[in-house]
């Protein structure tokens, strides 16, 4: 009986896992045995998108196309909800096991994703996930307990969008002790915020992402002289930490706490 259970567990532990999404790439890198990883997504080596871009160099890369992924004969494919839906459907219809990780909209959902990936990858990954989560919880507690005043903050990114309170970024801001202006503007899901409305809301801090090397009108808006003139503009350095529900979100929360303390020291 014991032998039967052991062999059952072994059969359930996937040995060739393919990831097609930059968020599942990082969860896989954190939790799987290196030998379990068959290939990672094209973005896995992009330092703007992945916190583990450097480490991803050690693994094969796929091109995100159903044809080449099927040829790798994976026994588990992990992907995001919005990553090439047609590809996902094709792989499913070819009889592959595809697990979809929807984007995390809160720190709790980020926790859930870590736990779920651990469960999918077998007992060793499971215990690794458990210890990661324990460390996650205690670090988050410590960050949340940082004292000091709570400034009113706008997170303003490309295309003039602002982060809503009901988003991962909004949850991270709340955990860092920042008051998101999206709440007073009654925009729980964020969205496009006209520049003049942002200015008139008069936030204590305006957070933006790091600029790209090449220009685009979408990101040029962040260089608008008015934003500079407010003197409240701060550039977020931990860009890749914001994208996915991984333990790295706490690096971003920590950067926000540092920004908050720096702001209150200047008051």
């Amino acid at each position: 009986m014991f032998v039967a259970v052991a062999s059952f567990v072994r059969a359930e532990t996937p040995v060739r896992v393919v990831s097609v999404n930059v968020c599942t790439d990082q969860l896989l890198q954190l939790l799987a045995q290196p030998a379990q990883i068959a290939s990672l997504s094209p973005l896995a080596r992009d330092p703007r998108s992945s916190k583990l871009a450097q480490e991803a160099g050690a693994y094969p890369q796929n091109d995100g196309k159903a044809e080449s992924i099927a040829l790798q004969e994976p026994d588990l494919i992990v992907t995001g909800l919005y990553t090439a839906k047609a590809t996902t459907e094709m792989l499913r219809s070819l009889g592959h096991r595809v697990e979809i990780f929807p984007p995390a909209y809160s720190l709790d959902e980020a926790r859930d994703a870590i736990a779920r990936m651990g469960g999918l990858l077998g007992p060793e990954a499971q215990s690794r996930a458990d210890s990661l989560l324990a460390a996650f919880d205690s670090r988050l507690e410590a960050l949340k307990a940082t004292p000091g005043p709570r400034p009113r903050v706008a997170f303003y990114y490309a295309l003039g969008n602002t982060a809503g309170s009901k988003s991962l970024a909004g949850d991270m801001m709340a955990a860092a002790g920042l008051t998101n202006i999206a709440i007073e503007l009654n925009r729980p899901y964020g969205g496009a915020l006209p520049l003049e409305q942002l200015i008139l809301t008069d936030p204590d801090l305006i957070l933006t992402g790091q600029p790209y090397d090449a220009p685009a009108r979408a990101t040029d808006l962040l260089d608008h002289p008015v934003l500079k003139a407010t003197g409240t503009l701060r550039e977020i350095k931990s860009g890749a930490s914001w994208l996915c529900g991984t333990p790295f979100v706490l690096d971003a929360v920590e950067e926000l706490v540092t920004l908050r303390l720096d702001w209150s020291a200047r008051q």
Binding site: A216, A218, T219, L221
Partner: peptide
């Protein structure tokens, strides 16, 4: 362009805007 937002401004160049 290496900037992922650049492709979204095709519509700006074809349709025009004076916003911001």
């Amino acid at each position: 362009s290496p900037n992922p937002y650049a492709a979204s401004e095709i519509i700006f160049w074809m349709m025009g805007s004076v916003a911001d």
